[in-house]
């Protein structure tokens, strides 16, 4: 971090679903242009961390700061407008809207310092979407929906993208395209927090890896450090 303020700082984040305590003090940060993977087994709290940062599961304790600005009490739309975009695992496509209308739903004015994206950029990444632009979101394939949900969030010109399980259930070719897209976001200065089940992909695109277990971060280091730590892999990641 070189003593500088990180772009996104998550400190001692706690969250509950009703009475069940899911996050027990999650702390990590993301620098500008970093791709940080959140790894861990199912139920370790990775998705909840994203939802909590986004304000969809409001944190019960702890802090979230974007470029030093506190966001842990903000509404989801304020968090989005501040520069954090969220790509949910469930994709959450508006089935009653066309592909193009779905994309337009994501458009937001860019905050200072954000990389700007246009609809044409999205069609360059995924030409399929251009062909399907007038099709209803509910009638496109799972792979196309995944492309759409990523592009929709990217059109908000975010500083940080939170992407939850983008390759789940997709054909290898589309998985590769999604990976390429994430790498390109990083090249263009967007920071990414990635929850990904497939370790090989996560480590390929990440600059840093965090491992979660029992609602906490149990490891924070480089992908190389992670794969060399056999005990860590066995304790927290092996199925």
């Amino acid at each position: 971090m070189n003593g500088k303020t990180p772009l996104l700082a998550v400190e001692n984040l706690h969250a509950h679903y009703g009475k069940s305590h899911v996050l027990h003090g999650v702390t990590f940060d993301v620098g500008r242009g970093e791709v940080v993977s959140l790894l861990g087994r199912n139920g370790s709290g990775r998705s909840t961390t994203m939802k909590s940062v986004m304000g969809l599961v409001p944190p019960t304790q702890g802090a979230v700061r974007l470029a030093g600005v506190a966001l842990d009490r903000a509404r989801p739309y304020e968090i989005c407008r501040a520069g954090i975009a969220y790509v949910p695992e469930e994709r959450e496509i508006f089935a009653n809207l066309t592909v193009e209308e779905n994309l337009r739903m994501g458009e937001q004015a860019a905050v200072a310092g954000a990389t700007r994206w246009t609809m044409e950029d999205m069609f360059d990444y995924f030409p399929r979407l251009k062909d399907r632009r007038n099709t209803k979101g509910g009638s496109i394939s799972g792979g196309e929906q995944q492309m759409l949900t990523i592009c929709r969030s990217l059109l908000g010109n975010p500083l940080v993208m939170l992407i939850d399980e983008p390759t789940e259930g997709l054909a290898p070719k589309i998985v590769a395209a999604v990976g390429e897209c994430i790498l390109d976001m990083q090249r263009r200065g967007v920071s990414v927090v990635l929850v990904e089940q497939k370790l090989s992909i996560a480590l390929k695109v990440s600059t840093r890896a965090c491992v979660m277990g029992l609602g906490r971060i149990v490891f924070d280091g480089s992908p190389r450090q992670l794969i060399e730590d056999e005990k860590l892999l066995a304790d927290w990641l092996a199925v």
Partner: peptide
Amino acid sequence: RSAIYKPRMAEALGHN
């Protein structure tokens, strides 16, 4: 129309 369908996602995309 999106908010009718999925209000939480519409909010997460920056709409009040």
